[in-house]
């Protein structure tokens, strides 16, 4: 029997590894020389002030912004500057800031769309039904078009759409942005539960969030971004939330 040679570098232990990555929109470089890793079964929270480059980081991973230097390795494959539509087929689901739901499609159809790259259509339908029956918020809007849903309803459907993709890597950008506090709690209840389920399947999650306290409740690992650079990277609890806040102001 043939045994394939294994590459034994840092990336084998991690699901996603960014090495000295710079990300740009056109000519404008937003992130410089960034190195970080996410292991299977881990939640990485990326926190930081407005304009730190958190969204750009996620966009760079899925190919919506260009990686101009460094390498992005996912599951020992090079992701650098792949087309965004390929991410889904590789098991990467993106829940972008502002939700990006299909405005004239129902809640059910929006959930269904998350499973588009999957081959087993019955399993997709089952997962959509499962999500709807588990979350009454989603059930309420299952027949309503996304453009007439509230922000909280949209966010729950957007997270569900990511879940229906059956991701190995789920990227979530600012799920609490623009929501009333009571809805933020609801959204985080959904997030906590689905992340528990995903981690059991050895998937990984990157959560970008301005609400540091909420993010720390879910995360194993925290990375603080400011002005396009990592200013802190460590396990949860190494640094209390109040001090993370101070890092924003450095």
């Amino acid at each position: 029997m043939w045994v394939r040679a294994m590459t034994t570098d840092v990336s084998t232990a991690s699901l996603l590894h960014l090495d000295a990555v710079s990300v740009a929109y056109g000519e404008t470089v937003v992130l410089r020389d960034l190195t970080l890793s996410v292991a299977p079964g881990e939640v990485l929270a990326v926190v930081g002030p407005n304009g730190a480059g958190k969204t750009t980081l996620l966009n760079g991973i899925v190919g919506l912004a260009s990686v101009v230097a460094g390498s992005v390795t996912y599951d020992s494959r090079n992701l650098r500057n792949m087309r965004p539509e390929r991410a889904g087929g590789m098991g990467i689901a993106y829940v972008p800031q502002g939700r990006w739901l299909f405005p004239y499609a129902s809640g059910t159809m929006n959930l269904w769309s998350g499973g588009y790259p999957r081959r087993d259509r019955r399993a997709v339908d089952r997962d959509v039904k499962g999500f709807l029956s588990r979350w009454p918020v989603a059930q309420r809007v299952s027949r309503r078009n996304a453009n007439v849903m509230s922000g909280g309803e949209q966010q729950v459907v957007a997270i569900g759409r990511g879940l229906v993709a059956e991701p190995r890597l789920l990227l979530i950008d600012e799920p609490s942005l623009g929501l009333a506090p009571v809805l933020v709690e609801e959204v985080f209840r959904v997030l906590t539960e689905i992340s528990g389920g995903l981690l059991e399947k050895n998937a990984a999650i990157i959560l970008v969030e301005q609400n540091v306290n909420m993010a720390l409740e879910i995360a194993d690992h925290v990375c603080v971004l400011a002005a396009g650079e990592i200013v802190h990277d460590g396990r949860r609890g190494e640094l209390p939330a109040s001090q993370i806040g101070d890092l924003y102001l450095h």
């Binding site: 889904g88 689901a93 004239y104 588009y116 790259p117 993709a165």
Partner: peptide
């Protein structure tokens, strides 16, 4: 779905 929003369609892997 692509007719409603091409960028969202790409992001979900259509």
């Amino acid at each position: 779905l692509a007719g409603q929003d091409r960028q969202s369609a790409a992001v979900v892997g259509i």
